[in-house]
């Protein structure tokens, strides 16, 4: 694997692991963090989070990553799955 690709995957995996742990703690899930699929829906179906969980999740994302989301529909798109959260956190790192 090329060094750039290895570096990208490593930073992505590190954020993925942290987001999974946040979700496991927020939802009080009694499963291994690895059992939370990166593309599993967080709301409605999938992990079945509700609006109360969402508020807690938004606070945690702000506190841990500095990712502030106000709760608009466009913001909601960033927390549809673990992977979309990881995307949003990685975009923060790309900002000048």
């Amino acid at each position: 694997m090329k060094p750039d690709l290895s570096e990208y995957v490593a930073s992505r995996v590190a954020i993925l692991d942290r987001v999974r742990r946040i979700l496991r703690d927020t939802m009080k899930l009694k499963i291994e963090a690895e059992a939370i699929d990166p593309d599993a829906p967080l709301f409605g179906t999938g992990l079945g989070m509700d609006s109360v969980d969402a508020v807690e999740l938004l606070m945690q994302l702000d506190s841990v990553f500095g990712l502030y989301l106000a709760g608009s529909p466009q913001d909601f798109v960033k927390i549809r799955t673990v992977n979309t959260i990881v995307d949003a956190v990685m975009e923060l790192g790309d900002e000048p």
Partner: peptide, 10 residues
């Protein structure tokens, strides 16, 4: 699994 992540264009 080493490349099963979004954002990879290689």
């Amino acid at each position: 699994i080493s490349v099963a992540h979004p954002g990879i264009a290689e």
